[in-house]
């Protein structure tokens, strides 16, 4: 039953994703990519939760490595997206002149 419930959530989220993303204009496609990339760093949650006291040795190694990579993804992804979006200005906001 758990599997069915999770699949249900998955299918709904995919459709929601299609709806949301198809509204993003092509001018913002690069920030969309880096921003959604940061969201895929959500794996970090799982990696943190896997580092439990009773786990040591190889399991702790895998978990720590996962936390490192996922954190790069989250922190770097959001920071670089913010840097990009900061640059998009309208004309009257002091863009060209």
């Amino acid at each position: 039953m758990d599997a069915v419930f999770l699949t249900f959530v998955f299918v709904l989220a995919i459709f929601l994703g299609f709806e949301l993303i198809s509204k993003v204009p092509s001018i913002l496609h690069t920030p969309l990519m880096s921003g959604s990339n940061a969201i895929s760093g959500i794996t970090m949650i799982g990696a943190i939760a896997s580092l439990r006291i009773e786990n040591y040795g190889f399991a702790a190694f895998l978990g720590t490595l996962a936390v490192i990579f996922a954190t790069i993804n989250v922190v770097g992804g959001y920071a670089v997206t913010n840097r990009m979006l900061e640059m998009f200005k309208k004309k009257d906001e002091g863009g060209a002149k």
């Binding site: 999770l6 994703g17 969201i39 949650i45």
Partner: peptide, 24 residues
């Protein structure tokens, strides 16, 4: 990975990103 650890937030966020990549 969200399915493996039965975590909804991983599934939802992952699916959003998956959909985004497919559309692009």
């Amino acid at each position: 990975a969200g399915f493996v650890i039965s975590n909804n937030i991983l599934i939802v966020a992952g699916a959003l990103v998956g959909a985004s990549g497919i559309i692009l």
